[in-house]
Design a protein around this nucleic acid. Sequence first.
DNA 1: GTGAAAGCGCTAACAG
DNA 2: CTGTTAGCGCTTTCAC
Lengths: 338, 338
Amino acid sequence: MSTSRPTINDVAARAGVSKSLVSLAIRGSDRVSEESREAILRAADELGYRPNAAARSLADRRSRTIGVLLHDLHNPVFAQVLDGVQEIVRAHGYRTMLVTGHGDSQREREELTALLDFQVEGLILISHGLDPALAQQAARECPVVIVMRHDITGRGISTVCADDVRAGSEAVEELLALGHERIAHVSGGDNRVGADRELGYREAMIRAGLDHHILVEAGDFTESGGRAAAARLLERDPDITGLVVANDLSALGAVVAAEEADRSVPSDLSIVGFDGMSLAALGSLTLTTMVQPLEQMGRAAAEQVFRRITSPRSPLSQDQVISTWLPRGTTAPAPPRG
Amino acid sequence: MSTSRPTINDVAARAGVSKSLVSLAIRGSDRVSEESREAILRAADELGYRPNAAARSLADRRSRTIGVLLHDLHNPVFAQVLDGVQEIVRAHGYRTMLVTGHGDSQREREELTALLDFQVEGLILISHGLDPALAQQAARECPVVIVMRHDITGRGISTVCADDVRAGSEAVEELLALGHERIAHVSGGDNRVGADRELGYREAMIRAGLDHHILVEAGDFTESGGRAAAARLLERDPDITGLVVANDLSALGAVVAAEEADRSVPSDLSIVGFDGMSLAALGSLTLTTMVQPLEQMGRAAAEQVFRRITSPRSPLSQDQVISTWLPRGTTAPAPPRG
DNA sequence: GTGAAAGCGCTAACAG
DNA sequence: CTGTTAGCGCTTTCAC
């Protein structure tokens, strides 16, 4: 059991050398004689020695750890971004320490604090509901990269985002191209990503001269929120033929609402989401969506963190990635006017 | 920037006391005079002091951290278990350190090693493909609780599992009750969870005198694997009316395969999954499934870990939870015999 | 090459 | 109540 693990001293004793030499040998320094190295490695192996990470990061003053705050784990979208992050972090020989705040700001603060207490060397924040003050505060202690929220800026903060306004407009424009006019919107609630997509929707509608058809109900990026909001929209205006929904997860909810309202998708009603989440293509239901390059965003974020760790004076970046239209099973030409 | 955070010494100096007293005050000991406490807390606050987690866990010889290994983050099922885990871990004032192995055994070993190097006080392993040797090795260093794999046992290992054999049988029996006879199975590949569910399927078929209709194709717990396996089954025997699929994720894939084979679900073909994953109810597609109480399993696992941390000699448990039939949109009475 | 000594920031006796 | 003294396990000068 926890009969305390062997320490560097045990190895040193067994190999008959000093602990400094063990330290060097373990980390593969070349200033150790072949002979000593062998003895040390063998002793370590026999003892089952492995360095204590806490001691090392204390002495080293670097944790070799990147902290990642995720909104939550239920939306697979975050997992996709995380994959990109992990790939780069691992490549640098670092580890990632993952926490989630479940969209609760207080909880996010606690978790972030815990990461900082652990002396993470960099922070990647992936949460659309993130409190800007939190991020700015964290940025005083280590490099911070924010994914999906370009509006949070400040000293020490970089961002990796899609152009959500443009994506919002493009979703509308694609529906327009399919002949839709009565296009409503399920928004993403009180946060910048949602607000931007909604803005894009509104602008595109106005540009198309369809201001009078602008119709919005608030969702919250969850499946149930999207379902409820879509239901309200369909009740307010049964003539809607197109629905632009703030993200894929709530768009899946909107599909449910559509069926409950006896609208068949896509023949009666076209639905578009955002994100390109991996599980959005299921069964009969393959969601049309504005895809974001999620893994790529994760990689970009991690790369930026390491750039800043390596050269703290390197410039802060504001990466922007491109969202693209991915037509699948929930969109079709507008039904003939009734 | 990282201009080194204030330490306990800085606080002590500023408050005009010794660092031991600061240590006590910070942790809320009552052996500190009201006067000193105030001075210390104020100094700490002014300096923005927060204890260094690495130093603390080194001196304390406890990390107050529970390590969690997850198969991967793309199957929302794991997120649900994790929620239960986190709830309990937080309640104990501990933190969780989360890693994933993406189903790769070598990678799982690395990540597990990293957790142990960090001196986690307990380990919760949630990965159906887990290598038993890995778990047993880890159990020599700290209490280990394995979720979903009752077959991995050993000194220091507890388990929290559903009775997958029974669940497998029950899925079949429910289909039998709906009048199905030609019931095939998409398995979960080379791991015990999958094997158990398959065994349950086989046993139930045999008990029903339907051995000659036993038909199995191997999936791998992924959506695409389920889709491919289901497609093969439908080709091998077009008369199948029921499909028991090893987990929800692959069941969703099976639904796609069914539609591609022009079988309509559930009127032509009933499909059952396992797990009760939150995203299995989407749009027209609400999957019938054998639900496991995922959050509860997570809580049970965490509670067991703390029980073992608190009293190392407390008995190893083998918790078993109940899977229940949740009929939804992908099952229906068997079509009349052609 | 190798070892002795001095910390990293914190906790934990043990005296006062 | 409070300060002193030792470490926790590891890295890192800096002599030899």
